[in-house]
């Protein structure tokens, strides 16, 4: 492995950690990162400056960091691959839940887009990882449902293309109350999609996030004139493009 690759691998690791920590707070402190990664705080500070130069994080001295759009994109991709791999190791290879994490950490950096998609299809589009039951981010392909992905099984990635805008799930803490958004992608099988569809939650519909209950509770959205509450598991499978505030 070249030093370049090694470096990019460690950048990816950092971004992943920041992404996970920012699920609970707006800004992530260096000390938190150091603790989580088991690294000296000084080297974290150094790394943060580099990441900031590369345009992956916004660095606020003494306050901490948060991810830029690009940093987020990379972090989510890595988290997605990591959690998909955990599913693969646990559900297909039958490896115990508590042992999948480390192994996934190692493979995730070498997985490419094509195998990522194949893995997702093989696992029937899982929505959470087996060990911590955290939600799996959406893929970055220009698709509106998993059905569509399966229908276009033969087409390669170039033909499908990438999304123009990053999508985030309704359960994502980055999506704030009062935010306007457009539904871009709904993950899941027929049954769930139909239930949502009957209530007016369809790809392309514009929504407003009305409120989010504490303790990872449901999120309430306004869609087509009605107000609908979606539990976090459901919310984590409905992905939206944020529209101007």
């Amino acid at each position: 492995m070249s030093t370049d690759e090694l470096q990019s691998e460690s950048i990816q690791e950092y971004l992943e950690v920041i992404y996970k920590l920012s699920q609970n707070a707006d800004k992530v402190k260096n000390s938190e990162i150091a603790k989580k990664m088991n690294i000296a705080p000084a080297s974290v500070t150094q790394m943060m400056q580099r990441l900031s130069e590369l345009g992956y994080v916004n660095y606020y001295p003494y306050k901490g960091v948060n991810l830029t759009v690009e940093g987020r994109r990379i972090a989510k991709k890595m988290v997605r691959r990591h959690r998909l791999l955990e599913c693969f190791l646990h559900y297909i290879l039958k490896i115990k839940k508590d042992r999948v994490h480390d192994q996934a950490c190692e493979i995730e950096h070498t997985l490419n887009d094509e195998s990522e998609r194949a893995l997702c299809q093989l696992l029937k589009h899982p929505d959470k990882c087996p060990d911590t039951r955290n939600p799996i981010p959406a893929c970055d392909l220009k698709l509106s449902s998993c059905d569509e992905c399966m229908k276009k099984k033969r087409r390669d990635l170039g033909e499908i293309g990438k999304r123009d805008q990053d999508v985030i799930s309704l359960a994502d803490p980055a999506l704030k109350e009062g935010q306007k958004a457009r539904i871009a992608f709904i993950r899941g099988g027929h049954k769930m999609i139909r239930r949502l569809l009957d209530l007016g939650i369809t790809v392309g519909a514009t929504i407003v996030v009305l409120r989010k209950a504490p303790f990872r509770g449901p999120v309430e959205i306004a869609v087509r004139g009605s107000n609908i509450a979606l539990g976090r598991t459901v919310g984590s499978s409905v992905f939206v493009e944020v529209l101007g505030v």
Partner: peptide
């Protein structure tokens, strides 16, 4: 599995 909440709020 527990089903997720989907409920209209009037």
């Amino acid at each position: 599995e527990t089903t997720g909440l989907i409920m209209e709020i009037h």
